[in-house]
Simulated assay, not measured.
Amino acid sequence: MSGHVLALCGGVGGAKLALGLSLILPPERLTVVINTGDDFTHLGLRICPDIDTVTYTLGGLSNTELGWGRSGESWEFMENLRTLGGPDWFNLGDKDLATHVERTRRLMAGEPLSAITADFAAKHGIGPALVPMTDDEVATIIETDDGDLAFQHYFVRDRCQPEVRGIRFEGAEDAMPSPGLIAALKGPLDAIVICPSNPFLSVDPLLALPGIREALAGHEAPVIAVSPIVGGKAIKGPTAKLMGELGLDVTAASIVHHYRGLLDGFVLDSEDSDLAGRLSVSTYVTNTVMKTIEDRTGLARAVLDFAIRLKGRA
């Protein structure tokens, strides 16, 4: 494989595979497009959780114990905010805070999120292109029995406890895909990889942008998704709970159906090998649980090998 790879991802799970891809591909051959539906303004600061998770992960800065935020973090800001009676439901570490302050300053000065994200990545020594899905604001809204909730209120403040009745992406229909996303889709690609991020919360916002679903479905490069479900459970986050509340079976087959019309291939975990041959797309069975660096690079190699096989078949 000598061409370009486009990876679509959200936060923690997607960042793990993005890291694996970055370790086996030359940097100029990888573009990572990141969900921004989780972005929100808090304490006057523009916070981009998935962008920061991917940036910290690929930059070797992530807090592996918490699974989010910076390593070696301190919390004096939060302690003082709590003393003053400020909202403390969303933790902002002292190192992490600098990212949000500088991003907000530059956004207010008129810089697009794409340029700021690329600059932060470069300053952290990251070679592959890190690209927000859009420079416009898109907000993931969770519809619950308790009313509509902004994503971070549902996910962090309320700890995913409200039952979900629906999801919508405010502003998506009027948002422009970012220049980096458009350029990647127009160029030659060896593979388009949908990372094992939450399909409903992390990937669907990207697919809701005008023209993106059609561009992916019509692209000559194989589109491959990695299952976020292993043995009827989600590796990380509320995917399984969400699927149940939306009336879906918590299986990898439901994920394939959700991405219907987009996929050329689907990567199953070995625990779900019984589904191979029973799905509507070609499958590849391997270990998808990424606990170590070797797991991440191993899965990345498996995905790219699968892409080569699908291109050859085409």
Rank of each mutant, 00 (worst) to 15 (best):
I192T: 09
V33A: 11
M1R: 11
M1E: 13
T297Q: 10
R29E: 04
R168D: 02
S114D: 05
K236V: 15
G20V: 12
H257T: 15
D148W: 06
A314F: 12
D39I: 04
M108Y: 08
I224E: 01
F266L: 09
D204Q: 15
Y284W: 11
D136V: 09
W89H: 10
G261C: 09
P162W: 07
I24S: 03
V289R: 14
M290R: 10
H153N: 14
L107A: 05
G265A: 03
M133Q: 08
I192D: 04
V256M: 08
P177T: 03
V32Q: 05
M176G: 13
R278E: 13
S280Q: 13
P87H: 11
E137I: 15
R46P: 07
V303F: 02
T55C: 12
G125V: 06
G13K: 03
C195I: 06
V289F: 13
T41Q: 15
E73G: 08
A139D: 12
D190A: 13
H100C: 09
P179Q: 01
C160A: 11
R105T: 14
K186F: 08
G231V: 09
T104V: 11
V303K: 00
L8C: 07
N91G: 06
L149Q: 10
L262P: 04
R260E: 12
G60H: 01
M1I: 08
A234V: 06
E143K: 13
G247I: 08
E294Y: 11
G3A: 14
N287Q: 12
